[in-house]
Simulated scan of single mutants.
Amino acid sequence: MSAESLERRTRNYLSNNVPQIQEHGGHFEIEDVDNETGEVTVAIGGACSGCGIAPMTMRAIRHRLPDEVDDISKVTVRRAGGPRAAVMPDKTAEMEEMEEYKDYEPPF
């Protein structure tokens, strides 16, 4: 299997199963694919950079990609940077303490 094939399958999974990223003005980039080790690095940016629950999305991607895309052994997810990237504080811990988010799972 080629790295391009693994990259394509990763991109297809994210496009088809994590539409919230694009629907909310964000985007993702497949930054690196190591076909031999199965390690994939994904960056999320755009509106995701300013989203307080981006860490929950990142965690979901990190946990679900290896289960859903054959040959992926490890996923690293980071926020896309840049000199003007506005990053909101992580709201994950605060949300996990709120009753309405007790059983929250991103819808993908």
Score class of each variant (00 low, 15 high):
Pro55Leu: 01
Glu99Pro: 10
Phe28Cys: 01
Arg78Met: 07
Ile44Ala: 09
Gly52Trp: 10
Thr76Lys: 15
Gln22Met: 09
Gly50Lys: 14
Gly46Cys: 09
Thr92Gln: 05
Leu14His: 04
Glu39His: 14
Arg78Lys: 12
Pro106Ser: 08
Asp70Ala: 10
Thr10Ile: 00
Gly82Asp: 04
Gly38Leu: 06
Met56Ser: 15
Gly52Asn: 07
Asp67Glu: 14
Met88Thr: 15
Ser15Ala: 10
Asp34Ser: 12
Ile30Trp: 10
Gly25Gln: 07
Val69Cys: 01
Gly81Ala: 00
Asn12Glu: 13
Asn17Pro: 02
Ser73Asn: 13
Tyr101Pro: 06
Glu29Gly: 06
Glu68Ala: 04
Glu23Trp: 05
Thr37Ala: 11
Lys102His: 03
Gly45Tyr: 09
Thr37Gln: 10
Ala80Met: 07
Thr41Met: 06
Ala54Glu: 11
Lys102Ala: 07
Asp103Gly: 01
Arg84Lys: 14
Arg9Met: 00
Leu6His: 00
Ser49Ile: 01
Ser5Thr: 15
Pro55Ala: 02
Val18Thr: 05
Gly38Ser: 02
Gly82Trp: 03
Val77Trp: 04
Pro107Gln: 12
Glu39Tyr: 12
Tyr104Phe: 13
Glu29Met: 09
Ala3Ser: 14
Glu99Met: 02
Ala47Pro: 13
Ala86Val: 15
Gly26Pro: 11
Asn12Gly: 06
His24Lys: 13
Glu31Tyr: 06
Asn35Pro: 12
Glu105Ile: 15
Glu7His: 12
Pro55Met: 01
Val33Asn: 06
His24Ile: 00
Asn12Asp: 13
Phe108Arg: 13
Val18Tyr: 12
Tyr13Gly: 00
Arg64Trp: 09
Ala43Ile: 10
Glu105Gly: 11
Asp90Val: 02
Glu29Gln: 13
Ser2Trp: 03
Glu36His: 13
Ile72Ser: 01
Thr37Cys: 02
Glu23Asn: 11
Glu100Thr: 07
Glu100Tyr: 06
Glu99Gln: 05
Ile44Glu: 09
Met58Glu: 04
Val77Asn: 02
Thr10Ser: 03
Lys91Gly: 01
Leu65Ile: 08
Ile53Ser: 15
Gln20Pro: 01
Met58His: 11
Asn16Thr: 05
Gly81Ile: 02
Arg8Tyr: 07
Ala80Phe: 07
Ala93Trp: 04
Ile30Lys: 09
Asp71Ser: 10
Arg59Ser: 11
Gly25Ile: 10
Val69His: 03
Met88His: 14
Val87Cys: 03
Val75Arg: 04
Asp34Arg: 08
Glu4Tyr: 07
Glu29Val: 12
Ala54Asn: 13
Val42Lys: 14
Glu99Cys: 00
Thr57Met: 12
Ala3Leu: 04
Lys74Glu: 14
Ile21His: 05
His27Asp: 08
Asp71Gly: 01
Ala80Gly: 09
Val40Arg: 07
Ala54Gly: 11
Cys48Arg: 09
Glu36Ser: 09
Glu96Cys: 04
Arg79Ala: 04
Gln20Phe: 08
Thr41Val: 14
Asp67Phe: 02
Val42His: 14
Tyr104Ile: 03
Met88Ala: 15
Val77Gln: 03
Asn12Gln: 09
Ile21Phe: 02
Asp71Tyr: 05
Leu14Gly: 02
Asp34Tyr: 09
Asn12Pro: 00
Gly52Asp: 08
Tyr104Glu: 05
